[in-house]
Structure formats: C-alpha cells, structure tokens
Design a binder for these strands. Structure first.
Lengths: 188, 188, 188, 188
DNA sequence: AATGAATGAGAATTCATTCAT
DNA sequence: GATGAATGAATTCTCATTCAT
C-alpha cells in the first residue's frame, strides 16, 4: 500500500504539481481514505521526501556501478551515464521531474539530506572528467567543473522534451549527444 | 504599481514557488492591500501570465536581433545566444526559473499562447544550425534537432547553478560551453 | 444620469438580485465609473430605497385615482386596480419584483418608511370591499381583510408568470380574474 | 448533522436572505466550524438545492395523495390543496419563502431540475380544474390555465402575510378563500 | 461631474491534519 | 489497517466605499 501511494503520488505530482495535488486527490486515485494515507506517512512532506530518496538513491546506485567499473574507458563511462539517464526517463521520468521541480517544498532540514546526494552525482561525473584528463582521454585544458555542468544540462534537460515512446530511441539520442560533446559540432 | 507588483512577485515565486506564495505575501512585501492587487490583476494566474510574457518576449526580441544579424557567422550567433542567456541570469534569472518551473500553473488556454513562443526560440537555434550546416560551418552529419536540445540544455541548466555574483564571469562560462560543443572535449 | 442609473439597476437587480449585483456591474452597464455612482447615491441601499419609492409611490398614485373616482362602482374599481397592476408589469414588472423580493435588504429604519405605503395600498382595496359590502355590491358575510389578501395574491402573483408579450392581453387576464372572484368558478 | 445544517440554514436564509447569510453565520448558529459544513455540502449552492428539493418533493408528495384520491370531489381536492399549503406554513413557511425568493441563486443546470417539479404542482391543479369542468362541478367556460394561476396566487401569497400563530386558523382562512373563488364575492 | 487608485472587511472554499472507533 | 467526522488556518477573490484630483 505504501508503495502504491508513492507511485500514484508521483504521477499526480508530475501532472499537477506537489502543492496543487491534495491528499484527497491521492487517496481518491487509489480508492482509499485519508486515514489510510496518514497511517503510512506522517505528512505530505514525508511522502515527498520518500519520492526524492527513491529517485536519487536509485540513480546514484546505477551511477556508481558505472563509475567503479574499471574495464571501461572514461568516454564510455560518460556514454553509459547519459544512456542510463535517458533510459531512466521511461520508468522514472515523472520522479525526475518531481525531484527537480518540487525540491523547494522540502524543509531546510530535509533538503540537507538530499542536496549532498544530488551533488555527489555531479561530483562523480566531474571525477570521471578529471581522471580522463589525467589519463589523456580528454583535452588537458578543460574546466572540468563547468564542463560537468554542461553535460548534466544536456542530460537533465532531456526530461523536458524526450519522449521514450517517440521515433528516436534512447541509444540514438545518446549517440548524438556524446558525439556532440566529444568531437564537437564544428566542421574540421 | 503594476510593474512593482510583478517584480516583487517574481522574486517571491522564485524563492517559494507560485502556489506557495500567497497574494497576501505579495502585497505585504510591497506594503499595499489585497484590493490593490486585484485592481491591477484579475487573478493570480493573470499575474503569472504577465511574468511569462515579459520573460519570453524579451528573450525572443534579443534572440531575433542576433538571429537576423547578417554580419555574424553562425558560430558567432550561437555564441551570442549563449552569452545572452547567461547574461540574462543576473537580471532575469528569477523570471527564467519561474518561467520553466511554474508553466504548469497556467490554464490550457493560456499555455497555448506561451508554448509557440517558447518553441520559436528553439526553432531559431535549430535554424542557425541548419544554415550553418548548409554553409559548411558545422559538420554535415549533424542531427540539428537533437543538437539544438543539447545546446538548450547546456544553457538553460545554467539557471540552476550559475551565480552571476560568483568568481566566474558570464563570458568565461560561455567560452567554455561554446568550445565544448564546437570542438569537443576529446583529445585529438 | 441619476434616472439612468436607477433604470439600469432595476433591470440588473431583477435579473441577478440585489446582493449579486455589484456597483461595478451597474456602472459597467452604463459606461461610467464607480465615482459617478457615489456622486448620485450615498450608498447601494439608498439606490434600492429610491427604487422602492418610485415603485410604490407610482402605484399608490394610480390606485388613489381609481379609489377616489366616484363615478365608478366598487366592482369596477376592483377591476381597474387589477388591470392597472397587470398593465404595470410591462413597464414596471422588474421594479415590482425588486420591490417584493429585495425589501429585506433595507434597514429597519428605511423599511419603516416603505411598509406603511405598502399597507396603504392594501387598505385601499379593503376599503373598497367594505364600502361595496355596505352598499350591497358584495356579499354581506365577506371577511374583507382576508378576501383582500386573496385578491392581492391573485394580482401580485401574476408578476411571477404573466408575460405581457405573450398571447394573452392584460385585459383578457383581468376579465378572467375578476369574473373568477366575483361570480365564482362553481357551476350554479 | 447534515439535517441540522439544513434546518438552521433555512431559518437564516428566510430571515436574512441567501446571499446575505454567510457559511460562517450558519456554522456559528450550530456551533461547528466551516470545515464541517464543507464535509457535508460541496458548496453553498448545493445546500440551497437541498432545501429546494426537500420543499418541493414534500409538497408534491402531499399534493399527489390528494390528487389521486378518487373518493373526493374536485372542489374538495382544491380545498384540501389550499388547506395543505396553509397548514404547511407553520412547519415549512421558511422553506417556502426561500424556495420562491432564492430560486434565482441556483445555476441554470440546477434550476432545470427544480422547475419541472414546480410546474408539475401547477399542472396538477390545472388538471383538477379541467376534470371538474368536464364532470360539471365547475363552470364550462373557465380558462383553466389562468384560473390555476389565480388560485396559486391566492395560496402562495399567504406565505407573505399569514401568521399561523395569529388569531385565525388555517382552516378558517381556507374556508374564506375557497368560498371566495367557488361562489364569488358578488351579491346575487 | 466624474475618474482612478486604493482600502479593508468579509466572502466562499480548500486542505493538511487529528482522532475516536 | 482503515474509516469518517471534524477542525482551523489559510487562500483566492469580491466589493462597497473613500478620496484626492
């Protein structure tokens, strides 16, 4: 039941927004009453926190698997992370939108448990870049921090437009994106 | 007074969110009464619409100036648009966040007035890419549509992290971003 | 202008009700601003009072003319009053509805200026009956007070259903009503 | 609790009018909070609708009992309906006033559920007249439709003046009214 | 005579939350 | 585990009225 509530909530939060979705909306969508909600969650914010944790923990888990894989080149690791993010949209796109858009609805205290994880995800990418520079896979003069923000931008923005049901696959889009930032778009 | 209300609202909406900001919050921040708000706006949503229009119209105006400038190369046009977006953050960053985050709070009908403008901004970038490909500035095999989403992602995501008061200037960040997607990060 | 405001108000009050009609509605229907309204009326209630006075004074004026006409029989006087009320609907039907329905929106003090006039109208009918009884036009055993309420009911209720634009004329309806209460509907 | 709210509301609506009575007034009169009101009614208008239904359904039920009674003459049926309406004042007078005066506060859609019932009440009286004419109880030349409006006027208007606590009983008034429209007031 | 800006009190309604059962 | 009744605080919005110009 708790999982059911969470899943329905994510869908509603994505469509209408956290504040615009009432507990009533949530329980109506499942066919239970408000009492049931409060049996499983002590507050609406706790539910939001739950959604945040589920999302970011899952993402970090996947990322760190890629990150630690010593058989892969650094380019490949970047590729795999982008692909992972894009593939994630189908099952977790709604969660992702809620994650980015509704973070402000968490209290200071709760935010402070989420932000380090979000940052960790970024730092991992930055570390890949830095290692790759050191090992000669990437250009020596890169500003790894800013480039990381660039790569994250490319990937995260796809939540705004990429349709997993559309004519292009996750892999095709990833290919284009990775070629774009690896080789550049300028004609040689 | 109308402009004053709009400005204060943008700041509050950015900080707390549209739904979390009450009309009372807005008028308190100015020192007038609720009646005054409703003298100038017929609803909270109308105010949000106003903010959306101000933002996107301003952006399109700047973009089209760059777009139409025949003295510039296509690379330069991309550069100028990125720089324009980053420079925009200082004065319009709050509006931008509200624009992207709170769009869902507009009614269907109102959204349909905004979305074509937002799309226009993207199509203009895509057109620059397509022209540049034709003229030999960019690689022949580019998928202009997806690359446009990539570039937009890089630029738009900067609203999430770029601090105009920080140690890096808009120009420095733009240089890094443009070099990233023009030349690629891979070591030759 | 004052008359114009009153006329438009009556129409709006009839259609939407006194409380549901705002000063804004009234001035919008004329094309002036609220200031203008308050130049002519000190309050919304004063306007309502004005409407009440116009209506009841006009009615009393007509009634007393009939009442005092010594050439007419008492039956004829009743006939004329019914006809006057029905004919009144075309031009004053809206005022009449406002008069009966919105009286409660007047303060105690203002009500006390209206109620005696309304009662006067009724007493005049009752007086016609009493005189007619004395003079042998009507049955000796009538309860004039209650019968007056009956006649008033017949006439006043027509404001709820009689359509002056419809297929029946005021005169036709009056004929039916007067025959009804003079001769009765029972078959001899 | 729902019934309690309805009862208190009727009394308040009658005294002060629907629009002039706030939800706060209603809940204060019972000693609960506004939330309670909205637990039972989705809007103020729904409450008004409830009151309308209760009133007209009750009335129709009583009327149809009289209407269908084959042991009674048609004169007797008219008598019984008038008596029923007058007797109704004591317990339902407030509802009746609200019914007639506040009908305009219902939406088009809701009105369309009430008006047929109100009309049904009238048609039933008209049918009694028509049958009575056919069976020779009433005069052959009657205009049943208009006479029905006359009888309804007599009865409905009594809600404006009849005081069930006063010196005259419902039966006495009914006697006067029925004699008035059966035998006429004219001296033979 | 008329306007436009502003007020402030109060309106209906929503909603997260509590709690006895 | 789950329900239904109730709360109370906050929210958007309305509106009669005032007043300087």
């Amino acid at each position: 039941m708790k999982a059911k509530i969470t899943e329905h909530s994510v869908r509603l939060f994505e469509k209408k927004g956290f504040s615009e979705t009432s507990i009533q909306d949530i329980v109506d969508s499942i066919g239970v009453t408000k009492g049931t909600f409060y049996y499983y969650f002590s507050s609406k914010e706790e539910l939001l926190m739950d959604i945040h944790f589920r999302y970011i923990d899952e993402l970090l888990k996947h990322q760190e698997k890629i990150f630690r894989d010593e058989t892969k080149s650094y380019k490949q690791k970047l590729y795999d992370i982008i692909l992972m993010l894009l593939s994630n949209i189908k099952s977790q796109g709604a969660s992702a939108k809620v994650f980015f858009r509704e973070m402000q609805n968490l209290s200071e205290e709760r935010l402070s448990q989420i932000i380090p994880k979000r940052d960790q995800f970024r730092f991992n990418i930055q570390a890949i870049l830095e290692e790759g520079i050191k090992k000669g896979e990437f250009r020596q003069d890169l500003n790894a921090e800013i480039v990381t923000f660039g790569i994250l931008g490319i990937a995260n923005w796809s939540y705004e437009w990429f349709n997993p049901e559309g004519s292009m696959s996750e892999k095709e889009v990833t290919d284009i994106f990775v070629e774009m930032f690896l080789k550049g778009i300028e004609r040689d």
